[in-house]
Amino acid sequence: MAVATPLVNEAPRVVLSARGLRRDFGGFTAVKDVDLDVHHARVHALIGPNGAGKTTVFNLLTKFLQPTHGTITLLGEDITKTAPDKVARMGLVRSFQISAVFPHLTVLDNVRVALQRPNRLATQFWKPLSALDALNGKAEELIRSVGLEKEVNAVAADLSYGRKRVLEIATTLALEPKVLLLDEPMAGMGHEDVGMVAEIIREVARERAVLMVEHNLSVVATLCHHVTVLQRGEILAEGDYATVSEDPRVRTAYMGTEETS
């Protein structure tokens, strides 16, 4: 299978790393001894069967969950004890497995809400809403980049599932994060959208780090530079796609049971 051709402009350096990451839920260990290094200008895939702990790893890295053990470092700073909103402000932004949009706001307002804080237009309670029109240019660009220009005034709740996911990606990109964590960004999307989102991710990863959970292995094969396989909370294998997909343990544990769509 074809291996991704890295679109590298800058030398890869570690921007996000985890050491000895562990999370217990009562007696059950969902994530155990996970070491992870996410590089600048690289797309890193986190794969594994259902319930392997991928989303839990995302929750730990973004600090939506507190790790039981281990340390997390973002851009040279220890964020093991940092609050999730602070982590987001430091440049680590995530998307959610179950699409997270603001359902009763329009597509435009969804994107503008994401743009408000970085553009210092979030706390003004004395200014009219029209103050947000200053964000329209940027919002328009983002909406266009994910192909939502026809739905710009639609209410997010009325969008199809795939369109909601695309909208969430647009709002994530609005923050110009340094590290992106995408939890199954292409799940539930039509064929065209999968291609488009893959292209967006490739483009974005030129100057950012991307860590993504993805079940679609052909996407992983063509898009990702590095693959980490998780099983029952532990890292099973690591490397580029060719290496990992040849690994017999991975084949039995994961490839054999999963749809390759």
């Binding site: 503008r112 103050a131 947000l132």
Partner: peptide, 16 residues
């Protein structure tokens, strides 16, 4: 207001 918009977004989806 811009602030009110953020409040609405919190009402809509706090985690996001």
């Amino acid at each position: 207001s811009p602030f009110g918009m953020v409040l609405k977004s919190i009402r809509e989806n706090e985690t996001r």
